[in-house]
Design a protein around this nucleic acid. Structure first.
Length: 570
RNA sequence: GGCGCGGUAGCUCAGUUGGUUAGAGCGAUCGACUCAUAAUCGAUAGGUCGGGAGUUCAAGUCUCCCCCACGCCA
């Protein structure tokens, strides 16, 4: 039995994610996790919310709540929506967990011991009115270069000149507008990624089977310009993981927290600890420590392309630099963006369809199927309501749903609600079995390779094979001269439904469960041999006729939704 | 401006290390069937593979130049 550790990029806490976020990591990760479980493999599938950093603080302030309370609430909201989409996380954790606090501080201590952290003195603007430091974006003023009066601390949007916040004329807080600011000296910790450049380069070069998108981004960051840069891993904020050196104080770092991008990926590991604690203290280290049983684990990460640098360089630098035998990622599957009707999905502008809205309109399977079968793997892909309607209606309602409907209803009216006996399978059935053996083998190969679109394509072809078979043997005609043959053909049809229920479950778990339940299959096993799989329902086995699996989307629906989602959210 | 990824049938996309008449699904047209969610099945039509030059016996596939779209960065 294989063991699969699977993580999806962890969504940020400040709001509900859109469909582009969903298909960019969580959904394909879920597809893979469900597939591996269905194959009988041991899977630990983890995800969490990324809760630290300034955006969380600002969102909480806007909501008028303490940031910790805000995060707890939003975590519950996101967890509920994830459940609605059938995302089968073994644990949905939080980067603010005690486990992540301890582990992040542990890593910082190890890195410091390895002489991979150094202190840098910087000047930062402090706002007395806000009682906090103002990072680059949170300070505005007049550009010393062009006189533009809304220049930001890091750059003037008018003349594009790069600025240092302390150079701004008449600076003010972007949060409160206060001009009661002062420049303070502050010290920060930097991770010496440059010292690990050689190790990282060798590691990346050993990954010859990774997508080009992944390695090209990593190599660009490693080699462009002056190469990999050291990175600040602390901030002058209240909300975050306090800077400590393992269990000990870190002199000079009092009141500071780790930078969100330092602690967020560590949550992948800490989340396993959360999972263990929530499940009777299971042994989580056998998933993460190669010296404690994780040697045979295959670790796969899923993420959007914007996350690739952090997962190929920053996080591996943390793990390598610790000098401890942590499990490193084996395969990293990255995705391009899904566009919405000719433009980008936008959280800030509320453009596009958000996860809660999607579930309010249609069941999860509709979204899962369309998004996965149009997954932005090789390049950005496009969501339009017309494409969505076409894909869902044709594939789910017409090809699959109608197949289930025509077989079960025909059987009920001619033979009753048990599997009819009839004749033995003949040449036509043998040909179908051989065809499906080949198709299922291709489907499996594509799923193993995480070729999402091609897997969907093959699964669809497997559904179509059922309609082809039915059309060619035409039991509605056969029954007039040879009822025994018709009974056998329908027995095959019912067995096909059971097969589809199993094969389709990673893509459309709810509809698959309905198919299996209707066919009275209790304990579905992944098929290895079609001759066997297509005889699993024996004569006299009872079944039920399910309601139509999928309802078609009408053009009135799409018109309405197009209108509804054209503007901004709220 | 630099860098990155793309530009293949009306639409969404496949096309391994260059090699026989460039593929799929949808849409369109025609036909078959009537069990079923006006569903299904079959057939047909449709492309000078963004443009130009080059390498080669042979290029959608390699090299160079240009154009276009998108993204990232400064």
């Amino acid at each position: 039995m294989q063991r699969h550790l699977i993580t999806s990029a962890i969504p940020y806490i400040n709001g509900i994610k859109h469909l582009g976020n969903l298909i960019g990591s969580q959904l394909p990760a879920d597809l893979y996790a469900r597939y591996q479980r269905a194959r009988g493999n041991e899977v630990l599938f983890l995800c969490a919310t990324d809760e630290h950093g300034t955006p969380a603080e600002l969102a909480a302030a806007k909501a008028g709540k303490p940031v910790a309370e805000y995060c707890t609430e939003m975590h519950a909201v996101q967890a509920e929506i994830a459940k609605g989409f059938g995302l089968s996380f073994d644990h949905f954790g939080r980067s603010s967990s005690p486990q992540n606090h301890a582990l992040t501080q542990h890593f910082a201590g190890r890195l410091a011991d390895a002489n991979l952290i150094h202190e840098v003195s910087e000047q930062q603007v402090y706002s007395n009115a806000d009682g906090r430091y103002l990072p680059d974006r949170y300070i505005e003023g007049t550009c010393p270069n062009c006189g533009y009066d809304k220049a930001r601390g890091d750059q003037c949007e008018n003349c594009t000149k790069q600025l240092d916040p302390v150079d701004l004329i008449e600076p003010r807080s972007a949060i409160s507008g206060s001009t009661d600011l002062e420049v303070r000296n502050t010290k920060h910790l930097y991770l010496r990624q440059s010292a690990l450049k050689g190790d990282l380069d060798a590691w990346i070069n050993s990954k010859t089977d990774w997508p080009v998108l992944t390695t090209s981004i990593a190599k660009k960051w490693l080699h462009d310009g002056d190469g990999l840069q050291d990175r600040g891993i602390t901030r002058d904020l209240d909300w975050g993981i306090p800077v400590r050196r393992g269990d000990a104080e870190w002199p000079g770092m009092e009141g500071k927290v780790f930078y969100v991008w330092f602690d967020a990926p560590i949550e992948y590991i800490a989340c396993a600890g959360e999972w263990a604690d929530a499940n009777g203290h299971a042994d989580w280290e056998r998933w993460w420590r190669t010296d404690k049983g994780a040697g045979d684990v295959r670790y796969t990460q899923f993420m959007g392309k914007d996350n690739v640098p952090f997962h190929t360089l920053s996080f591996p630098a943390t793990l390598l630099g610790s000098g401890e035998p942590w499990k490193m990622v084996d395969h990293l599957k990255s995705f391009n963006y899904l566009n919405y009707d000719g433009g980008q999905f936008s959280t800030s502008q509320g453009r596009g369809v958000f996860m809660d809205q999607a579930l309010a309109i249609l069941p999860a399977d509709y979204w899962r199927w369309w998004l996965l079968s149009n997954c932005p793997e090789t390049s950005d892909s496009e969501f339009t309501w017309e494409l969505f309607q076409q894909g869902v209606n044709k594939d789910l309602a017409d090809v699959l749903g109608n197949f289930v409907s025509r077989v079960t209803k025909f059987c009920r009216s001619k033979f009753g609600e048990t599997v009819p006996a009839g004749a033995a399978y003949g040449p036509r059935e043998q040909a179908l079995i051989e065809d499906l053996d080949a198709r299922v083998a291709r489907y499996v190969a594509m799923m193993e390779a995480m070729e999402v679109r091609k897997s969907a394509q093959e699964l669809r072809a497997i559904w179509v094979a059922g309609n082809e078979y039915l059309q060619s043997c035409a039991p509605w005609t056969t029954i007039k001269e040879d009822p025994e043959a018709a009974a056998m053909q329908i027995r095959m049809g019912l067995n096909l439904i059971a097969l589809y229920g199993t094969l389709s479950s990673p893509f459309i778990p709810d509809a698959s469960a309905k198919m299996l339940m209707a066919m009275g299959v209790e304990d579905a096993q992944w098929p290895s041999d079609m001759a066997q799989a297509l005889t699993q329902l024996s004569p006299d086995h009872p079944f039920t006729v399910p309601d139509n699996l999928f309802t078609k989307i009408t053009s009135e629906d799409t018109e309405k939704w197009k209108e509804q989602f054209s503007g901004t959210r709220d």
